[in-house]
């Protein structure tokens, strides 16, 4: 064994560099598209991808051996952007503020935690607008709307397929049509 790094169930830094460096052209395009999807119009896709690479390289996110590195980076982006959305979703924290008239009472300077109510409302409004815009893209296609609403409600793919009455091939084809129409309507992530 020539490597001085200990054998683990995760890729070492040099292995992850090697894996990422050997990604094919189609793989790089996939990562770009995934970054756009997980940007939600609130994060720059390039920044999201950069942060995912950095975490993988620094070992803050460990890639299990045998896992496709593209799927691993995609999952890292998902996790990063989900945290970002959740941080925008946090409810404001309530603090007790003294009403004493005592001059010696220093009172309380409430700490600032996460987003303001205004930011949370804006985040919600943006998601609502994206959702409405997507559904209106398919106002002429009831089956596509069922699939999209099923995905949004986290209904199992097989169940959605049963609801639409499509066979496996037609269902896959419809899914592709949905994604491509969304891609064209939102060319830079979820920005219209």
């Amino acid at each position: 064994m020539t490597s001085i790094e200990p054998a683990t169930s995760h890729l070492t830094t040099s292995e992850i560099v090697q894996e990422i460096s050997s990604i094919s052209d189609a793989g790089w395009i996939r990562l770009r598209k995934v970054a756009e999807k997980y940007s939600y119009g609130r994060i720059c896709p390039d920044d999201l991808l950069h942060e995912a690479f950095l975490r993988a390289l620094e070992g803050r996110r460990k890639c299990p051996k045998g896992i496709d590195v593209i799927k691993f980076i995609a999952e890292t982006m998902r996790s990063l952007s989900s945290s970002k959305l959740k941080s925008l979703d946090r409810k404001p924290v309530l603090h007790v503020i003294s009403t004493s008239n005592d001059d010696d009472d220093p009172g309380i300077d409430p700490p600032h935690h996460g987003p303001t109510s205004e930011q949370a409302i804006i985040s919600n409004q943006e998601s609502y607008e994206i959702r409405s815009a997507i559904l209106s893209l398919f106002s002429d296609d009831e089956i596509a709307q069922v699939i999209i609403e099923g995905d949004m409600e986290e209904i199992d793919s097989k169940e959605i397929q049963d609801l639409t009455g499509l066979d496996k091939k037609a269902f896959a084809s419809k899914r592709r049509l949905i994604r491509r129409r969304i891609d064209r309507a939102f060319p830079e992530g979820w920005k219209q």
Partner: peptide, 15 residues
Amino acid sequence: NQMIERLADALVEEI
């Protein structure tokens, strides 16, 4: 927000 996240997951799976 969660609905958009779930839809993004489905689109990413497709990609």
